[in-house]
Structure formats: C-alpha cells, structure tokens
Design a protein around this nucleic acid. Structure first.
Lengths: 330, 330
DNA sequence: ACAATTTTTGCAAAGGTTTGCAAAATCTTC
DNA sequence: GAAGATTTTGCAAACCTTTGCAAAAATTGT
C-alpha cells in the first residue's frame, strides 16, 4: 500500500542506502544520482516514514504542547504561534488539553514523551517536583511558569502591570482594586508582584480581592465586590474577568470609564470588540509560542551539556490604552 | 536511555513476545505471568514505543486535525472536543493550522498522512478534487464540509437559520439583511440556503450583502452597508461579524435591539459577554469534534469495505435568544 | 596506462515492536 | 501415569529507515 524507500530504490536502480542519503545527506551522493533518486521519489510520491527514521535516529521530528484550557483564547494563540514556528523547522506538533488538571497534565506529558523530541508546557499548575521529574524524562520548556532547572519563556507581566499602574496614576487614580487570579498560578504571582511594586512607587493604594477563577463569570461577581470598596479603578487578572466586570457595571448603570476605570490583561481579541473597548496589557502570545519552540529547538540542538543555569527567555508586554480608562470623577 | 520491552522481559524473566502479548492480547498469557510482567513494567516505568509498534501494525494510534484558523474561537472548541474524545480512545492528536490557505491545507494533510491513522479536516476550502485525492491516501473525515465519497459530520446550519428567521418573523420583522461569509465555504452556502427557504416560508424579504471575510472588522464595515438598505434586522454569517455590527451600530448611536435587531451564528463565548448580549445560533462545536473522531474511528474499524455511500453525521443547532433582537420599531 | 587517492555506492546490522509458527508446559481423560 | 488436547511461551522474521564499514567507481598524478 504505502510506498517505501525500497520502491524508490527499485525505480531509480540504486540501493536503499543511496536513496536514504539522497534525502538526508545530499552532499554524499553524486549530483546525477541524487537527481535520479529525487525524480523517482517524486514520481512515486514518496514520503519518508518518520516513525521508522525516529526509531533509528532517536529523533521523532515531533514536539508536544500542553495547555490547561483551549477554550481560553489566550492559548489557541500561543499554540498557533508555536505550530507555525514548528512547521518552519519541519516539526509536527501534538496538542493536548489538560482541562486545568495538574495530574492529567503530568500524565499527558508522560504519554507524549516517547513520540516527541520535547514538549512545551503552558501555564503549568504542576508542582515543582513533578515538573522537575518530567523534565528529566524529556526535554521540557515552560511557558509562563518558572521552575528551577527547566528552561522557560516568560512574559513580562510585572512590567505590564507597572505600565498599567503608571497609566492609572497619571490619570489621577489613587485607590484601585486588583481582582486576583488562581492562587498557584505563576502569572498571578507576577502580576501581583508588579502591581505591588508599581503602586508603592506611584503612591496608589491597592485593595486586593479574590482569588477568583480566571473566567467571565468571576468578573460579574467581582464587580459588585469592587464597587463596595470605594475604588475608582479596577485591574483584573485577565481580560475575561475584566469583561465580566464591564458587563456587570453596565447592568448596574455604572458608567465606564467615567465612574469607574477598568483594565484587563492579555489583550484577547475580544478586548477590542466590546464597549467600551478595554484598556489592557497585551501579552505577546504568538511570539511567546514561537519563542518557546525556538528555545526547545535550541535545547535539543545544544545537546545534554548542562551549560549552567537553564535558559530563560523573557518577552515584553505592552499596555494598550483604549476606552475603559479615564480620570476619576473628581 | 529509554527503557524497552527487552528490559521488562529481562526483569520479569520472560521473553519479549510474552511482554508484548501481556499488553496487547492479555487473554493469551497466563494470569500469573501477566501479573509478573505488568509489575515489572510498572516498576521500570515502561511505556511501549508507539512508533515501533506502528511500524509493524500499520496503525500509529495518532490522528490529525487541521483547522483553517485557530484564532477563530469556533475551532479551538472543536479541537478541544476532538482531543478529549481521542484521548478516551487512547489516540494522540496532531494539530495543524492552515491559515485559511487551501494549498497549505492540502500540504499539511499530506505531511501528516504517514504519522496518523486518519485526519479530521475542519471547514475545508480545498476543492472537491483535491479533497477526493487526499481521502484516497489517508482516512479522512470532514467537518462542516460536504464532499462526495468522503465521510463528514455536519452541523445543521440550515435549520439554525430557519429558527433565526422564524424568530425574527415572529417578532414582526419583514425585511432583513444577510451578511454573507466566504463564498466557497460550505457553511456559508448552507446558511444561505436555510435563510432563503425559511424567509420564503415566513414571508420576510432578505437582502444579501457581501461576501465578507468572517472577521470582526468586516462586521464594522457591513453595519454601515446594512444601515443603508433600510432593513430592521441583520443576520450575520458568524458571531465575529455580528459583534462588529453591534460595535459599529453603537458608535453610530443606533440602538440595538430597538432600532435594529442583530443575530449572529456560532455562539462563541463572546456572544454572551457583550452588550447587548447577542442572539445567535449555537453550533455544537465540542460535540462536533467528538462526533468527528467517533466517525473517524468507525471508519478505521470498519475497514476498507466501502459499504455504499460515505457516512454522514449531522448534529443539531439551537437558536439562543438573548438581548440583541426585539420587535422592530413600528 | 597504472597506481594512489578520493568519491560514491552497496551490504548488512540496528532500532523497538508484533506475530506466525513451533516447542514447551499444563490440563484432561482414561 | 500416559496419551492426547489445549494453553502458554519463545524464536525469529518483519516493518522502514539510517549508518558504519568495505567494496566499487571515479578522479588524479605521473
């Protein structure tokens, strides 16, 4: 059925080794024969069997990516960037969704490990030890999660927060709420840290609410709580929550941004589609996905040589000022 | 490095064949030895190498899924459903994004074909011939696309449209606009067909605009055009466009739904988060993804036996009435 | 034209698994 | 307890590649 290297060899009247070399080490075969082989392969529509190749080379040409929730628009974007970059390097990608379950996450990584050269784990909630273990059985790259000894690409959320706070301070806000995200999420810790630091510097008081689930519904709920705290602005852990806040404030006839400023985080597509359009911190998701595969590929090429600390790549974030922030009503 | 079936055999003091059988045909090995093998495997943390297995069985235990645009929230949802279902059957999934390019789509399918047992192609824009060809070199299942000889799961968009039109007619609308999507998309044809049929029955006149790209920005643009046509309601090809319309109407101070009703299609998460909340037709995306892998697995199990026409599964749609539709201003 | 190089090619083993076949072990029956 | 039937096991070939090694062919220098 499927056509193999032998068929090509037969048609081109050469040995299979020659065919193999024509593909993988072209400089070792005489140009004329290479031409011959390539034509034969083309006529037959031959594609090398990567599994068989992997068996002997130990490299599969695949990589895996596991995300906690594909339904959160943040991740498809990361995946999309990763997939595009992987393709450029002629890698195929396995995708798995862990449904925010750390145990499933761990299981998925393990299940993949034989079929891939390495895996990218996004916003992992696994504990440090498991992560460490996993990184010993396969090449791992973390995205938006830091773990000693494991390379990672990180988005500079703290700096994004700084920008957001400076923006609010410049507008004249002196007291604002932070709607905290999942407690054990690295992103949440970072955002919180950035917020704390910046607010001290800018002299704005922050009241922290939560933790909340990083979803729309939590925003609805959080809006009322924030309203009760007498702040003039609210910064949400992510855009989904911010959208919830916007929605609830609208229901309660609180004008945004006149009576309350709202800032989100992530810049999901939706942030530019709602009314008022949401001021938010853009996370370079596709770029992050690309960076993660770059890092992974580096790691694979660099060999096992543990040259000191694990690599780390940090990509910048950018405040996008839209219509949901304004000076507080005097 | 990696631990193989031989290691397990060694530890359990049996031959590799026995180990192999303990996993794949348990009833052929004596319970006691099976137990022995399983324990040894467990202690060693053995995982069979699927590539090697695939080499000999001809089955990879993987399947592929290609989508035109991961950034469109419709597809992550489908993928998520498919991935979950695949996992249940112990299949891993390859994901590829064709960036709405039919040629890339075709290329991706080909590239995958050696690594998977079958592939699910979502909302394909490939032409019928290429699709047919592709389906000869691997088991194919289409989602939201119909092609002779290729099994497919279809979402009943036409019926969704019927529900939408009946809803508008019941509210008293007599003239409405349809913002058409990509011309060569099966979904668009179906929606259009359903709209036509229902509008004739309900006695509502429809003016068709477009085609437009199925994105937010196109909705902005389309809103003005619709406004110029003196209709009381607009039905968009999908939610992204509908959101654009909502946005633009808001800018132009046209009250929705009082001065204009808007209905979308897909029921993406965003539809419930905007103001006013969008009346739309729910597409059973996750269910569709699941159905697609079921169908694919059936197809694989059913063998090559072409028992007549290609299978087809159609899943229903449901109008979700929210706040963007109301009786027209008299 | 020949020897000495160098380049190009082929042979065969290897990689981890499954499976047909035959041998060994166990069970039945008398 | 032995013959026969049946279950359980092991051997070795096969799947499709890549690659070390050695043989063959081409090239070079004289």
């Amino acid at each position: 059925m499927a056509i193999t290297i032998h068929d090509v060899a037969g048609r081109a009247q050469v040995s299979v080794s020659t065919v193999s070399r024509a593909f993988t080490m072209p400089e070792l075969v005489r140009p004329a024969t290479r031409e011959l082989v390539l034509r034969a392969a083309d006529e037959l529509g031959y594609r090398p069997n990567r599994a068989a190749r992997g068996l002997i080379t130990g490299k599969t040409g695949n990589l895996g990516i596991v995300v906690p929730d594909l339904q959160n628009p943040f991740f498809p974007s990361v995946v999309s960037g990763a997939q595009a970059q992987a393709r450029q390097a002629d890698y195929a990608v396995f995708l798995a969704d862990s449904a925010e379950d750390p145990r499933l996450e761990s299981e998925l990584i393990h299940a993949m490990t034989k079929q891939v050269d390495g895996v990218i784990v996004c916003s992992s909630r696994m504990d440090a030890k498991d992560l460490r273990t996993a990184s010993e059985s396969t090449t791992l790259v973390l995205l938006n999660r830091k773990n000693p000894g494991v390379p990672a690409v990180l988005m500079n959320s703290a700096d994004g927060m700084r920008q957001a706070v400076e923006h609010l301070a410049a507008l004249g806000h002196r007291r604002c709420a932070f709607l905290s995200g999942p407690r054990n999420s690295w992103s949440n810790k970072e955002r919180r840290r950035g917020l704390r630091a910046a607010s001290r510097l800018c002299g704005v008081e922050v009241v922290e609410l939560g933790p909340f689930a990083p979803v729309f519904e939590a925003g609805l709920q959080a809006a009322d709580i924030a309203l009760a705290t007498n702040v003039t602005a609210v910064v949400a852990f992510n855009d989904l929550m911010a959208l919830g806040v916007l929605n609830r404030l609208n229901d309660r006839k609180i004008a945004v941004p006149d009576e309350m400023s709202v800032v989100g985080f992530d810049d999901i597509a939706m942030a530019g589609m709602c009314t008022p359009q949401l001021t938010t911190v853009e996370m370079p998701t596709r770029q992050g996905g690309r960076a993660a595969v770059d890092l992974l590929l580096d790691e694979l090429a660099g060999g096992e040589g543990d040259r000191g600390a694990a690599q780390q790549r940090v990509v910048g974030t950018q405040l996008i000022v839209r219509a949901s922030t304004a000076p507080p009503r005097s």
